[in-house]
Write a protein that binds this DNA or RNA. Structure first.
Length: 564
RNA sequence: UGGGAUGUGGCCAAGUGGUAAGGCAUCGGCCUUUGGAGCCGACAUUCGCAGGUUCGAAUCCUGCCAUCCCAGCCA
């Protein structure tokens, strides 16, 4: 193994968390015979977001590191909310992230027959009954956090009667809401989940997979653990809010006498300036506040993909945030660090001007075009170089010129010399303004001795700025994004305040950029670093006549900090 | 006022009785044909608080405080 590989291995091995500690212990005691089988169990009622990415990386990462595998299983027990579109998007997103479940794609609905048999088993054991209380009555009989519940009048029904009633439920002999099947556990439990939880409800809804075969559907609690069990899952990893459900998860496994996986809960991801609520994300889409689930401002996996994030950067992010049981709020800057780090190594450089200021180089020949060598990636020599056209009229960034520069500004200013990247040194000779006093153009001279960007006399030029030849420039629609919300921690919104009030009106801006011509035939998904500006990626909205480009993330800008 | 969980620097996060890893952010400096990248350095006398046990406590014990979750026929 070469030093590089050893380094990589150690990096993986050093990632410790409480779940790995549990698995290490299981392996030591032989609890599962060294087996590790996890699953990622999304409900297909929305698109996956970065919080799901954390879970995906956790589950698939655990299996990968312990020589196990991971199943993809759709938790599709509520036909009124679930759709094929979501299934398709989830499959695409998990694959895109770089994970593979091979032939182990499952649906909880695959187990409806088995689940029905399990229900029968509990009825026959006297541990489940059909209850005719209404939803409201069930709620009031359940009691409260501090008051015990009381038994349903139907709790004492005979096994025979329950069998007959449950069959009738399945056969569609009752209306929705007439009755449910409940587990007979403990109405006095301090854990509300154990106060005779509902196992089956009547729903005359067409299921996206089972069609109209069923008019009764099992609840999450009566489905999830059993599905894990059927698949012989060893470690069932879920989020903190299911901690209170674990006793019920365990109860079903024990009383059904089936394989009993261990449920382990971890804290879900919260990110600053955004939110993970599927419902609110759906609202953003429905209300047209964003352009769709894959709007580059969305915290969805498809949003990040369109924005230009790489799967590797998101996996790296998931590794870096760690896993624990403490509810946390991760800085968005960590995510930005991860994408910059990846793209710095892999993205070819190019020059583009987003806010142009025209320069005429007065001593440069009128019709001459020179092709100058430019390095594609200073971080990776194997990416080679390209040629960029240079001519008498160019555009530079408006921010790169100041008529009255402060002390540490070492870009262009009247009388000052600056390096045009890969081209020449130029000196500003004259500032041209319109009748409103606005700067419209600069007259500069160039030093022919400095071709390529260095001078024979070794004179020091601190500032290097990017540029694009006016005559050769390529137009593009450039889309700039900022945080979708103005509030750092969206949990801080008071109960009575509408979260819509915190949507950032400046989160999306369209401008016209002037690009170097080498970008002409770039295809959707291509990523670049526009030197000194940031990382950008070609959007799918591009066509042969128009290039559309998304800004993924800006470069770090220490001048902006000094300037503040 | 019931039950379940969590409290380690601005944000994450190791640590499981032997004297506070690491990352992001921040702040200095070096270097630089991207004010990018890179490199070097700084950054918790202290682990929610108060007691106690111990030669020794973030780790054990007691009490308190704070925050989150639970009363869907959602997942």
């Amino acid at each position: 193994m070469n030093p590089e590989e050893i380094k990589g291995t150690q990096q993986t091995a050093q990632t410790v968390n409480f779940i790995r500690t549990i698995i290490d212990e299981d392996n030591r005691t032989g609890k599962w015979g060294g087996r590790v089988l996890t699953r990622f169990p999304p409900e297909p009622n929305g698109y996956l977001h970065i919080g799901h990415a954390k879970s995906i990386c956790l589950n698939f990462g655990l299996a990968r590191d312990y020589n196990g595998v991971t199943n993809l299983r759709f938790d599709d027990t509520n036909p009124v909310k679930e759709e094929q579109e979501y299934i398709d998007s989830i499959i695409e997103d998990v694959h895109w992230l770089g994970f593979d479940w091979e032939d182990r794609l499952f649906y909880a609905s695959d187990y409806f027959d088995t689940l029905f048999d399990y229900a029968i088993k509990l009825i026959k054991a006297g541990k489940a009954y059909v209850c005719n209380l209404s939803a409201e009555e069930i709620r009031s009989y359940r009691g409260t956090l501090t008051e015990l519940g009381k038994s349903s009048p139907y709790r004492g029904r005979s096994i025979e009667e329950n069998m007959q009633l449950f069959e009738a439920m399945r056969n569609g002999e009752f209306d929705e809401g007439d009755c449910v099947l409940r587990a007979k556990i403990d109405m006095a439990s301090a854990n509300l989940n154990l106060r005779d939880p509902v196992m089956y409800r009547i729903l005359f809804a067409e299921h996206h997979r089972t069609g109209n075969k069923w008019c009764i559907y099992p609840t999450y609690d009566f489905t999830h653990g059993q599905s894990d069990s059927i698949e012989k899952i060893t470690h069932s990893v879920c989020t903190l809010e299911f901690e209170d459900h674990r006793p019920l998860y365990d109860w079903y496994c024990v009383h059904l006498e089936i394989h009993h996986p261990q449920q382990i809960e971890f804290a879900r991801l919260n990110l600053t300036y955004t939110m993970m609520s599927k419902r609110k994300l759906l609202d953003l889409v429905k209300e047209g506040i964003v352009r769709g689930w894959d709007d580059p401002r969305m915290p969805t996996i498809s949003g990040f993909r369109r924005r230009g994030y790489t799967p590797k950067s998101i996996r790296d992010f998931a590794d870096r945030i760690g896993v624990s049981k403490k509810e946390s709020m991760v800085d968005y800057s960590l995510l930005e660090f991860c994408i910059r780090e990846d793209l710095n190594k892999t993205a070819p450089r190019a020059m583009a001007v987003l806010n142009p200021l025209k320069i005429t180089i007065t001593n440069y020949p009128d019709d001459l075009t020179e092709l100058l060598d430019a390095i594609n990636n200073p971080e990776d020599a194997s990416m080679g170089s390209r040629q960029v056209p240079f001519s008498k009229e160019i555009y530079i960034e408006r921010d790169d010129f100041m008529e009255e520069p402060p002390k540490k500004f070492y870009r262009l200013a009247p009388g000052k010399e600056v390096r045009l990247r890969y081209a020449y040194y130029i000196t500003c000779r004259e500032v041209i303004k319109n009748e409103n006093g606005e700067i419209t153009e600069l007259f500069c001279t160039y030093d022919p001795e400095t071709k390529g960007g260095s001078s024979p006399d070794g004179r020091r030029v601190l500032g290097t700025i990017h540029w694009v030849s006016a005559r050769h420039a390529l137009h593009a629609e450039v889309r700039l994004y900022e945080h979708l919300f103005t509030l750092e921690d969206l949990n801080d919104i008071p109960e009575n305040e509408d979260w819509h009030n915190f949507i950032n009106p400046k989160s999306f801006e369209i401008i016209t950029g002037w690009l170097e011509p080498s970008l002409k035939n770039s295809t959707p998904g291509s990523r670049f670093q526009f030197e000194r500006l940031g990382y950008f990626c070609v959007d799918a909205d591009s066509n042969e006549s128009k290039l559309v480009i998304n800004r993924t993330v800006t470069l770090r800008d220490s001048w902006a900090k000094i300037n503040k």
